[in-house]
Every structure is written in C-alpha cells, then in structure tokens.
C-alpha cells in the first residue's frame, strides 16, 4: 500500500527491517495482539464508566469502540512515560523496540506520537494495526482516521475528558504541553473524515512529519487541549481543514456542460490540495494566486500548464504575463495586486 510505505519513509534506514517485522508480526502475533487489545479495551471500559461522556456512543460500531479503547489506556501510558523520561525523540518511533508487538503494547516508549498513530491505525483495517502500531510518525494517523465517520463530537469529548484527567495527574507544565499535541492533532485529522482521499497522500504526511521532526510543532498552552483554530497563527498550513477540503467534490457536483463555475467556490475557499494533481498545496503554493479568477493550483502544475496552452483551468483565459500573487487578494473590494512583479515561472507565455 502506498500510505504504508510513505509512513515508513521518513526514516530511511528503517523500511527493510520494518517490512520484515511487519510480516512476521502479521503472521505470528496477530492473536497475541488481539488478546492484549481486548484486555486493554476492557480496562478502558471500566475506566470509561466514570466518564460517561465518552461512552455514550459506545455501541455504535465495533471499530470505533476498539479505537477508543486503544487510545485511552495508551494515553495514560504515555503520560506515565512522559513523566519518566521527559524528552523523547520522534525518531525513536521506529527504531525503538516498540516494533515488537509486546513493546508496542506496553506503549508509551515512543511518546505521544506513537499514541496518536496507534489511534489512527486501529480505525483502519486489521492489517494496519500491526503495521502502524510501531508508527513512523503521528501524521500517519491523519490519513487513516478519515475512514471513520460520524463520531467527531464524541471523540472530542473523550479527548477533552482525558486531557482534563491527565492534567490532574501531571505536575510539570512541560508535559501538559507535549501532551496536548496529541488530541489536537487527532482532532484535526478527524475534521477531515468527510473529506476525499486528498489528505491520504504523500504531501501532507511528509510535510507533517517534517514539521514534527524539526520540532516546529507549536506548543499549546497547557489548558488548551483543543485543536488549532482555523485562524490560529501557529496552525500548520498543511493541516486539512474541513471547509477547504470540501470545496473540490462539491464543486464537481455543480458541473454543468460548458462553463465551469470554479470561481465562486474557489475564491472563497482555497483548496488545500491542488485540483490538478491532487497533491497538497504547500505554503508557497497556497499563497500563489496566478489568475484573477481565483483558481489556485500548485506551482508545478502552473508551470506545466504554461508550457502547454497557458490557460487557467478555472476560467480558461490565458494566464497573464504579470502574475497576481498575493495572499487572499480576492476579497470583495480590498483587492491588493502586485502587478509589477512578474512571476519567474513564466518561461514562455
């Protein structure tokens, strides 16, 4: 599977051994794993009775149920571990002994990232339970969690309740910070659940893991366990946003014959993935507005189009030589053009 290999990708040394151990695990220890998972689930169920908030949708779907049950005890483990070893490298996710099923179940060793990842994997097929329990990076969960539908509110409630619970146990504010990442990231990934497979790709995962390993993930204030808000300055550009993601399929449905009503949708909601190649838009791409109609696309596709017929896919008018390049410039009357600046991408148009 593509997503698997990509999740593995961030650590170049790992893949071979990882694949090997993955197979082994799939063959040998699926049963063992399942036993332990069940045990954990029960553990959580008893614990969850206290937090009735989290349990209300319990019976809905077996997958969901297991998902949560995995997540919660894991969280606690993480928490303990965080208290024990303080600083943990993200790289340790795959290199650490957590590759072996027992260790990964003991959890925690790799910090909050593997925790998040674990949630994601358990919501998908059983094969990936074994594959991503050893998780390369937390962003892996983003692609997988979108398979889950309809439990957003409940999930958040659980996350919040847990966080509150954990905050009580914790003494050092630093841990609170690192902890609060996992609900926020996961929550964001939940936002994308109704979203096409756009996120499941390559771009987002790798970008996220890059930010992650570069230590650029913004720290939240200890009390705030919510996700980044859409207007949050620290919010990574690459994170999916429900409104944005919706724009593409919704637009599709409105296609008539003849003209394409791109502009009305795309001006207001910038897509987070390029509508041409479906890759995620990075920071440069998403501030790149090559046409007055507001149709966005990635620089790569823009270049390819310029080399061919040079017309904007949104309005089919030829791209102008002078590029309009400004962030969100098309908003009612406040148009800010920088016409003087001609784009370097214009090779021959």
């Amino acid at each position: 599977m593509v997503s698997d290999s990509i999740t593995n990708a961030p650590i170049p040394s790992a893949p071979n051994s990882r694949d090997f151990s993955k197979k082994k695990r799939a063959n040998r220890s699926a049963k063992l794993k399942q036993c332990k998972l069940d045990a954990r689930r029960e553990q959580w169920l008893s614990q969850g009775a206290v937090k009735s908030k989290g349990c209300k949708e319990e019976g809905n779907c077996a997958r969901k149920e297991r998902n949560r049950s995995l997540e919660n005890p894991r969280r606690r483990d993480e928490d303990n571990n965080n208290n024990n070893n303080g600083s943990i490298h993200h790289e340790s996710d795959s290199e650490s002994p957590s590759n072996s099923p027992t260790n990964s179940l003991l959890g925690g060793g790799s910090g909050s990232d593997s925790g998040t990842n674990f949630i994601g994997s358990s919501s998908s097929s059983s094969s990936s339970i074994s594959s991503s329990s050893s998780g390369g990076c937390c962003s892996g969960s983003i692609s997988e969690e979108e398979e889950e539908d309809g439990c957003l509110d409940d999930w958040e409630a659980v996350a919040d309740a847990l966080a509150a619970d954990d905050d009580n146990n914790k003494s050092e504010p630093e841990h609170e910070n690192s902890y609060s990442q996992s609900p926020s990231e996961s929550q964001l990934s939940m936002q994308s659940d109704s979203m096409p497979e756009l996120t499941d790709g390559i771009g987002l995962d790798s970008v996220n893991s890059m930010t992650e390993s570069a230590g650029m993930v913004p720290r939240m204030s200890g009390n705030n366990t919510r996700a980044w808000r859409p207007d949050d300055a620290y919010r990574p550009q690459s994170l999916p946003n429900l409104a944005k993601q919706r724009s593409f399929p919704v637009t599709n449905r409105h296609f008539g014959h003849g003209g394409v009503p791109w502009a009305c949708n795309n001006v207001l909601t910038a897509p987070s993935s390029c509508p041409i190649c479906y890759e995620d838009l990075d920071l440069t791409d998403s501030s790149f507005l090559p046409c007055l109609c507001g149709f966005r696309l990635c620089l790569f596709c823009h270049k390819r189009i310029l080399e061919e017929d040079g017309r904007c896919p949104g309005c089919r008018k030829p791209y102008e030589h002078d590029q309009v390049e400004s962030e969100a410039s098309v908003q009612g009357s406040s148009l800010t053009f920088r016409l003087a600046r001609s784009c370097s991408m214009v090779a021959r148009s």
């Binding site: 296609f255 394409v260 791109w262 041409i276 189009i305 017309r311 896919p313 949104g314």
Partner: peptide
C-alpha cells in the same frame, strides 16, 4: 480544463 475529472466528463 485540467480541473475536470473523468467523473465530471461523464456528467458532461
């Protein structure tokens, strides 16, 4: 337009 998909071609 490159923004079209096979699905949207069917609709057209």
């Amino acid at each position: 337009s490159p923004a079209w998909t096979l699905q949207s071609v069917c609709r057209a």
